[in-house]
Simulated assay, not measured.
Amino acid sequence: MEVLMSILIGLLFACAVYLMLSKSLLRIIIGTGLLSHGAHLMLLTMAGLKRGTVPLLGENALFYTDPVPQALILTAIVISFGVTAFFLVLAYRAYQELGTDNVEDMKGTE
């Protein structure tokens, strides 16, 4: 399962880098979103894809799942959602002011 997740993470990173190297601001924002999803999957895969019970005090469970990586990923998802929303508002405002979403045209050199 880890090999399949590693291949998926590599594909997400490759697509994200391809989109972030384009000149369209909207494609750059989508690329950063894909990059953050790839990082979340990488953290989850590095923590270990194992099945187990919940870690309860007083229980003698042989196999349990560590909740810390899941909590970190949940926090990172919320932060990336906020950053993506900010990027979208910033891109919309730049499109209103400049009339284009091309990064080359936004340089301001004449």
Rank of each mutant, 00 (worst) to 15 (best):
A71M: 13
M106C: 08
V3H: 06
Y92F: 13
G58S: 06
L74T: 12
Y18P: 00
F86M: 12
L34I: 10
L74F: 14
G33H: 00
A16P: 01
L12Y: 04
L44F: 15
G52T: 12
I73H: 03
L19Y: 14
L19T: 00
L12S: 04
I79A: 11
V103K: 08
L26Q: 02
V89P: 02
L19W: 11
L4I: 09
M1V: 10
A91E: 03
T53H: 07
L34M: 07
G58T: 06
L19H: 03
A71D: 07
V17K: 04
E97Q: 07
G10S: 13
G38A: 10
I30W: 00
V83L: 15
A61H: 11
L41W: 05
A39N: 03
D105T: 02
T100I: 11
L88I: 14
G108Q: 04
I30T: 09
L43P: 02
E110H: 03
L35W: 12
Q70A: 12
V89H: 08
V3Q: 02
P69I: 02
P67F: 12
L57V: 12
D101I: 10
P55S: 08
R51G: 02
L44D: 11
E59W: 15
I29T: 05
I29C: 07
L56F: 15
L90R: 09
S24I: 00
H37S: 13
Y18V: 14
A39S: 08
P67C: 07
P67V: 09
Y92D: 03
A71H: 05
A85D: 03
N60I: 14
G99E: 01
V103G: 04
S24L: 01
G10N: 04
A16N: 06
I79V: 15
Q96W: 12
L4M: 02
E110G: 03
D105L: 13
A85M: 13
I7L: 14
S80N: 09
L56Q: 09
V68I: 12
L56C: 03
E110I: 05
T45G: 00
F13N: 00
M42C: 13
T100W: 11
Y92P: 00
I29E: 07
Q96G: 05
F13R: 00
M1F: 14
T75G: 04
L98P: 00
A39Q: 01
K50L: 11
M5Q: 05
L98M: 01
T65W: 09
V17T: 14
K50F: 07
P69F: 05
L72M: 13
T109G: 05
G31I: 02
A61G: 06
R51Q: 09
E2R: 04
Q96E: 14
V89L: 15
F87I: 01
E110C: 01
E110N: 06
I30N: 01
L41Y: 15
L90A: 09
